[in-house]
Design a binder for these strands. Structure first.
Lengths: 224, 224
DNA sequence: TAGATTGTTAATCGATTAACAATC
DNA sequence: TAGATTGTTAATCGATTAACAATC
């Protein structure tokens, strides 16, 4: 989950948020769905499917066919009327737009319970995101198969040296705002916020909120 | 993150989804924000604040004051004109509506890399959700401090015996749909889906999608 | 009473979907 | 050519915000 808004406005996204940022002409919700289409197309490539219609792709992605076609208008004309889309071609175009070609370095801040769990999660790497550094108020020696957790005091130096723009924030709620300010001050432009605090940051900083407790709470409400 | 829609419609929420369900008159986005307000009020209670205005609470929650007031209309009249809201009173009312009073049992299905991480995450318990059972195709003995991972074949029996309605799904994408069908068949009404697959399920089942890779991908797009 | 703030309605805004001409 | 499906515009729908009367 995440809460920031589409590129056009300010306000709150999924549930709530503070501060939004612009970075392109494609609305945030559309960018999100493009990621989804990209993944569906990856499966189709693996299945040796060469052509797909908007109806078929939309069905797999769980969206309305018209919405898919609307979303794709942001990517230029890509299909062939009467036929559909070339799977590989469409996938390549989305990869290009989403900037998936290159590996993205990310730092993780807050190596507590959730932070440690995220550090051991291999899904990020599988998707092209490498956690190149981990930070916490208390540093931890590297143990087998794990990267070292550095002291927060080394943050600025590390970011500058490695040109990193993205951070995963998994500190306790009570220190999230302060740490986020620190991150932004040190040059971070995008934060995946797992803390339960709504961050107040400049609009130039992109924030996506993932609040697992609220997701469950939300489900439990609708499960009754 | 999560993708299902507000209680009223069908379509996709944050990014994409398939299938939606109704369960009340309060729109899903509003329910989500009520959770957020509930947490902010918790902090205020801890700070011994007794009264709060819509402007102040909205600011902390990162939403527009009018939106907060609109959201609260679903909860009945709660404030005092000219003064604001009694913190404790409002918090209690939200707790009531969200059904936070009681502890919710949840199962986790898929004890791979991410599943193990989620099992060791203590944040769920802290928020009133107890992972009472874990399942995987291959069962695992309980080790110190961890609950046992049961074989999927024991699922139906376990659910029936414990009256569990919610599941966290952390299986690989390629088996997510099949396992989800199994869960629904066994009586699950709400799924927190961490897999990268968009699930196609009956509208009566609530699904929230959390796709960490897409969250990061989305951020990386806007961080450029 | 004067000032403040809620609750609510109406206006705005954006996102989704329907419809269809263009065209393969 | 006839059938299919895209790309796009217009219509619909829902969510957010502005505005203000009610009232504490």
């Amino acid at each position: 989950m995440s809460f920031r808004k589409p590129s056009a406005g300010k306000g709150s996204k999924k549930g709530a948020s503070a501060g939004d940022q612009t970075s392109s002409d494609i609305p945030r919700k559309t960018v999100y769905r493009l990621s989804l289409y990209f993944r569906c197309l990856g499966l189709m490539v693996a299945n040796r499917e060469s052509i797909v219609s908007s109806a078929a792709l939309a069905s797999v992605a769980g969206v309305h066919p018209a919405q898919l076609r609307k979303d794709l208008t942001y990517c230029g004309p890509l299909g062939k009327r009467g036929t559909g889309y070339e799977v590989i071609h469409l996938r390549n175009r989305l990869e290009e737009i989403l900037g998936r070609a290159s590996l993205q370095p990310v730092i993780l801040v807050g190596a507590g319970n959730l932070g440690q769990a995220l550090l051991s999660y291999k899904g990020f790497a599988r998707e092209g995101f490498e956690i190149t550094g981990a930070f916490d108020i208390r540093s931890q020696k590297a143990t087998s198969g794990k990267i070292p957790v550095r002291s927060m005091s080394r943050l600025r130096e590390f970011l500058g040296k490695n040109g990193i723009r993205m951070a995963i924030l998994s500190v306790p709620g009570h220190s999230a705002q302060q740490v986020a300010d620190e991150l932004v001050g040190a040059g971070i432009h995008a934060i995946l916020n797992f803390s339960s605090t709504v961050l107040h940051l400049p609009e130039t900083v992109a924030v996506n909120n993932v609040n697992l407790a609220i997701e469950l709470e939300n489900l439990s409400y609708f499960a009754r």
